[in-house]
Design a protein around this nucleic acid. Structure first.
Lengths: 210, 210, 210, 210
DNA sequence: AATGAATGAGCCTTCATTCAT
DNA sequence: GATGAATGAAGGCTCATTCAT
């Protein structure tokens, strides 16, 4: 079957996510991934250069999809506040729906390993760029104070989301990530000087009236 | 001599910081630390349970001192804004002055390892508590909107500082961390609803007059 | 087609000679031979039992041809000296003209492997027998001292030729093998007590006269 | 003990010789050598860089001693014939007394491996030099025809000895190497034009008389 | 207390061979 | 006959830790 090959690749990626989340990258034997994917050890090496390559490809691929998902969700947004909310919402929901992937992203991928770091920095920079685009658009639209330092603002947004996700991963409680979105948005709105929602609502209406 | 023992312990910690920063925790052989500390391999084990214990003790000790340093610097601060600024300032300056330690803190300590994580969580929670105290005090003093979610606000503050530090560690440019403090404080002030500095000045004066 | 089958077999043998000579038997992957022969990996196993079998068949076949070649060239020789010279000459020329094969013969086939050794010993013994036949005939004809130990003499002749060939394979210089033939023959003639050429010439003439 | 370290090194070398001779270099696991030497696997790597290094050091060391042995035995020889006989005799006796080493030398060390070949070529060249010195001295003393090509003569002597040794290693019979010495010497003497022993004896006597 | 030689557990990867198509 | 994707066995080496001195 033509699908078979692609199937196997995905099977290995999926197995690796579960395996890494379960026992950690370092303690995870390649044979465990193979077993979980239902393939032979050697088969792994027909699709991946080595164990690290699995982690890299896994991240690159899933992160790419993730960023695409956020972008597509943001398309219907007309202001910075909703864009930011969509970003946070999508990020949190995605992590909640893919807890093993979140585990890998928040924990396993923080390996202090040069080649891993290099491989990861690409997709990570894409995410950074996405956040900065939202900020820039906000400034252009006059929603965000123009004095804001874009890089620093991005560090705040990403750093906060990232920290919240990591805390959630390590927390034993059943608390969801999503229920912090309002509090978070309040902070972001205040930090960036976003117009409050009533004001924005009023402005939108007046626009329509005109 | 009693000093000798303490000396050796510190020597090993210092050597480990440099060694971990240089080649990374995993690639760093215990014998390298021993060599850099000027002791025999076996001597390490008179002071530390194992390799991981060096990393843990190193972090616990330095983090404790670090938190103490921030607390003492904050003592002379009379409002939330200056407390926060002192915290950020001290954090950034300390990292800039101890780049190897920063490397270890931001990179090496992110090992996805359960026992390491547990050992680290103590001092980390101390830091979190410190940040949350500042926020609580701000709310109590009416400087911070009382609707703010303390945990989320702490995640923002810590997450942002942490991300900025990590970015700085990995950046090749000569940019310092410190020169982002103003931009950062602007964001924090907006997020927490801190009174702007002129207003605060006015209020302080009126207090004195009264 | 019947030819096709034979063709493919030869193609694989030829590819193997080049491949083994290039990277050595152990480092040579079966897939490399397949690629160089223009067939699929699996096809190899339709013609050969396994990788070692290629080496064995290769040697057996080429060695057989080689011995045949020497025998046919020797047919026109009427005395031991010319027979020996023909043997050495043909051996050296053949190696010079088939450097890759020489590489395999002198280097790759020296694998310390029991089954390989057993398989090789057949054709090798054929060669030994050929040399010993020349010696025996020499003794019978009175050209070689009858006290000569045939096995030892054969060891000398084969050992010397073999050593010279190995030296040539590993030498970086452009020196040919063939130009050592005269020196070599001088040694062999002395060792075996062969009549010098003038004397032989005289004897032959007197024979004819009689 | 000061000896201990050297002891262990020798123990490993000795064990390796036996192990390689028994199952062959490639099939021989490092752990087997360790077991036979009575040390831990890791200990091997305190004395040798890797498995190949054992083979190299083994050969270099034993070959050096071997060459020294031959040289010292030859010191008391006053003519080429006795020097050659001593060389052959010592070579054969040494191989007979160290069958495992002979196995390694004649079989395992013929691996077609570049780094191995390079490491081996040094001591091998030393042996070649030794043989060539004997030939040169013979020419200088007028015992060997001056028209002899030294390199080719060396190839004959070494090649013959080497072939005889290899044949002996692979032979199943109980035949010793040593009993071929006379036959061999006869061939060498003839090849090099050495004066026969009676003649030499006569010359020596006449010298004394004068 | 200090040493450092010795230990030995542990795993990624290769590649000859198979077999479903 | 031909293919080539899939298989899975097998082992050299590292290095944290120990312990006799």
């Amino acid at each position: 079957m033509a699908v078979s090959r692609e199937d196997k690749y995905e099977k290995i990626i999926d197995a690796a996510i579960e395996a890494f989340a379960e026992v950690g990258y370092h303690s995870c034997q390649v044979s465990k991934i193979a077993r979980m994917a239902g393939v032979a050890d050697g088969t792994i090496y027909l699709y991946f250069k080595n164990k690290e390559d699995i982690l890299i490809k896994l991240f690159t691929e899933r992160m790419g999809e993730f960023i695409q998902l956020i972008r597509s969700k943001m398309e219907s947004c007309h202001d910075t506040r909703s864009r930011l909310r969509t970003l946070v919402q999508t990020h949190f929901t995605h992590m909640e729906n893919n807890r093993s992937l979140a585990m890998v992203t928040q924990v396993e991928l923080r390996q202090p390993n040069v080649s891993l770091h290099n491989a990861i920095s690409g997709p990570l920079r894409d995410y950074f760029r996405l956040v900065e685009e939202v900020i820039k658009e906000g400034i252009r639209q006059g929603e965000i104070t123009s004095t804001v330092d874009i890089r620093v603002a991005r560090q705040m947004i990403f750093g906060t989301i990232d920290r919240a996700t990591t805390d959630w991963i390590f927390a034993r409680s059943e608390r969801t990530l999503s229920k912090d979105i309002d509090s978070l948005m309040e902070l972001f709105a205040g930090a960036l000087g976003l117009p409050n929602e009533e004001k924005q609502e009023r402005e939108r209406k007046s626009k329509i009236t005109m």
